[in-house]
């Protein structure tokens, strides 16, 4: 199983690359010219993102670097203890919607400390895999086309993240108890 999945993920992009160009050539599309025409947009899109990313990442770094996130975790831990959510994984749960690299670091830490086949290890992995870095996705997606208002999307996504956390807890308890 591991081998199949690793092979699949190694081959996916090469096959996509070959597939799209082959399809294009066979329909007599000037693929190189088309590619360059499309690629011109990349520069613009990335630069349009910058102000949004600066805004979001500065605020996230201030929150994290000063230790405010750690304090929030301490404040919340009685509530999550009551829910039965293990405190080993709580930092990851709070970090997950905010920062992708931060949560990856925390996942690695949990795996190292408790082992990948322990309850916290499995819960952390499931939580990481079943949710996304919500703030990053929204910042980048909305920023790339210059949206100022995203209506109810943030609250929707945060509710979905919370549902994902509860589902992870329930599923891991069920699967590996």
């Amino acid at each position: 199983m591991t081998v199949i999945i690793q092979t699949l993920s190694r081959w996916a992009i090469p096959l996509l690359l070959l597939g799209i160009t082959t399809w294009g050539i066979s329909y007599r599309v000037p693929i190189y010219e088309s590619f360059v025409e499309g690629a011109k947009e990349g520069w613009q899109t990335s630069l349009r993102l910058l102000p949004y990313l600066v805004g979001m990442l500065v605020s996230i770094q201030v929150f994290q670097h000063t230790g405010a996130l750690q304090r929030l975790i301490m404040v919340l831990s009685p509530l999550t203890d009551w829910l039965g959510f293990p405190k080993e994984v709580l930092p990851l749960a709070l970090m997950r919607p905010i920062s992708g690299s931060g949560s990856l670091a925390l996942l690695t830490q949990v795996l190292e400390t408790y082992g990948p086949d322990s309850f916290p290890g499995r819960l952390a992995a499931t939580l990481m895999g079943s949710t996304e870095t919500t703030l990053y996705v929204l910042t980048v997606y909305a920023g790339s086309i210059g949206l100022k208002k995203t209506k109810h999307t943030l609250i929707t996504s945060l509710i979905a993240d919370f549902a994902g956390f509860l589902a992870s807890l329930y599923v891991v308890l069920r699967f590996f108890a």
Partner: peptide, 29 residues
Amino acid sequence: GSEQAVLVSVGLIGVISFWSGMMRIAQDA
């Protein structure tokens, strides 16, 4: 935070350009 923002957006230029180019081929074909 500001430094990270520049790294992320500059880091994305290449890969976004690449996939935008591939998408254009896919669209034209």
